[in-house]
Write a protein that binds this DNA or RNA. Structure first.
Lengths: 229, 229
DNA sequence: CGGCCCTTTGACGGACGTCAAATAGCGTGG
DNA sequence: CCACGCTATTTGACGTCCGTCAAAGGGCCG
């Protein structure tokens, strides 16, 4: 999965436009590539530059002292790592590459200044912010009030939606580089239980997973699970 | 619990200042009072006015079609219902009064315009935003990766922190108008299990609860539970 | 070929949910 | 003042969803 022009999605086009048309000297990104399993940043680290994913998948996660881990979101191409970084240089999370990841970084001080100056940029940021918050709240509901089946079905469907909106899903087929431990840490379950649920889904003809891709074989069936109970 | 001057906390002082010093005709709040159990707004409702809590406690919650409910946050005096409302008039949650609640509302369009005009107001908003997001992420970690004991202990401690920062806690004593079903819906547990855990906490000499107030009887003990495991 | 990571499966255990009943508190109205 | 109805809390017995532990097999890469 690769967005050819590199920079992308809601916030980014506005930034690029500002950079090109109005302030050619600022908002120039710098580019980075890191292999799978490497960290883009760690919890608590101070970031003067704000990363935006251009290619590959990453996790945004927190780890407790005893090793329990919660993935807060999967970062896809076009995602800003966190809008919070605009206003607080201390990263709340670790960001870890799932696949090889290419990303670009923008200077926080420059973005912040541009935000107040260009109201279209500001409007784009606020839209990303709203989505980020809605996603966080939905995660809390999933973890607090939904069963394992529902959580996993919803994770699959929401990833497909996000990819489709960016043109990265080919019908019901999508890239799916997640290991089961990623799914477990995102849904608050154990790897063993994720394996059981996914096997059940496969046996029920809901999904097919091979070779780091996933096909939704029964969309209505999957949707039914997310409403169930 | 009542903040005498009515308006309050991070975002509000800046708004009041803007209103008084620079735009006396805008940002004039209108005041409301509602009894316990009444709703300030419902999921999906369109709000042109943004509510800020002045007195009493409320919940911000979502309900699934089958009745399962998740409380996303408890709103305390000084809290804005949601910063998302600044940019999206469709409320994501229902907001329900726990006690009698007094609140004030500000016109969204006016706040939004003032935000871009007065950068101190903008800075205050971004601080509230960062806190809101951190709280949402912490909730996800609690629900995904912590035990019932830990969740409840952390809820108590975090409420005390929030109250203390606003001058509403007297030492280790605090108002505590929550019913056990509120705690259950906030921690993703059942009322029955909350009852058991709280009884256990009381028997262990960690907390005392009577007459809608809570005393932390053993702060180190409670804190130890939140780290445990 | 050997080592590592990932996945799967089974047996078992535990944390938490469900169901049910008893008790207490509290406001309302006779 | 008591009767009542409602809501909240507590407790016990039991059930279940998911975790833990363990072992085996597959795929990938050096």
């Amino acid at each position: 999965m690769h967005y050819v022009s590199g920079l992308w999605v809601q916030l980014v086009p506005a930034m690029v436009q500002v950079a090109q048309e109005r302030s050619p000297t600022i908002l120039q990104p710098s580019e980075h590539t890191i292999p799978a399993r490497r960290y883009i940043c760690r919890e608590g680290e101070l970031l003067e530059d704000i990363p935006i994913i251009c290619r590959g998948w990453a996790t945004s996660e927190m780890t407790l002292s005893d090793g329990r881990r919660q993935i807060l979101t999967f970062l896809l191409p076009g995602d800003i790592v966190s809008t919070v970084l605009m206003f607080d240089p201390a990263s709340q999370y670790s960001v870890e590459a799932i696949t090889e990841v290419r990303y670009r970084t923008f200077k926080r001080t420059e973005i912040k200044a541009a935000l107040l100056k260009y109201s279209d940029l500001f409007n784009n940021l606020s839209r990303v912010w709203v989505e980020e918050k809605m996603q966080a709240d939905q995660l809390a509901i999933d973890l607090g009030r939904r069963t394992a089946d529902e959580r996993i079905a919803r994770l699959i469907l929401s990833l497909r939606d996000r990819l489709a909106r960016r043109g990265f899903a080919r019908g019901l087929l999508m890239d799916f580089p997640l290991r089961q431990h990623h799914i477990a840490d995102a849904t608050g379950l154990t790897v063993v239980h994720v394996s059981r649920v996914l096997s059940e889904f496969r046996r029920a003809g809901l999904v097919e997973i091979n070779d780091r891709s996933l096909t939704i074989a029964d969309l209505t069936g999957l949707r039914r699970i997310t409403n169930m109970r």
